[in-house]
Amino acid sequence: MTISLAGVRATLWRSALFAGLWWALTNGRADSWGVGGVSILAAAILSLRLLPPVPTTISRIGLLRFLGFFFIQSLRGGAQVAWFALRPRMGLRPGIQEIPLRLPEGIGRVLLTNTQSLLPGTLSVELRGNRLCLHVLDIEAPTEAGVRHAETRVAHMLGLQLEQP
């Protein structure tokens, strides 16, 4: 393993993150840092193994806009499904839709797949290559427009280029 600047940066950031987690879990007890130090080191090594540092730049404005989008849409999603569940005639018109993604392969697609299950009316069923298979609560709803919007947000946050589907 060659030591790169990105690797050192990732190691420091991740160790700081795990130290913060340890602090929260132990309520900041001073006598726990012996075990804590070992755990933090082990967690940092494991995380570098499982997710090697990649030179991605997370745009801060992009992150904020994604979070805003995510919170508003998950509020809508939860409210919609609660409304379906509670009203006397549920009026579900479910179906399966397949949508070719514009995001490049990798973390962006995975994040989108996971996000999509919490957004209004869609549940990710399968991701094969660039094709995302969704179960939708209302087959008439503009599902593709929603996915396109989410894709744009994810791409902006992670600094990814959208491809032609």
């Binding site: 499904v81 379906f84 569940a85 919490l118 549940l123």
Partner: peptide, 20 residues
């Protein structure tokens, strides 16, 4: 309890419980 199949039930659990 009310939704008809596994897929629609997953919608209810994932979204409503996350918000709750």
């Amino acid at each position: 309890l009310r939704f008809p199949d596994v897929y629609t039930r997953l919608h209810a659990l994932a979204k409503a419980d996350n918000l709750g």
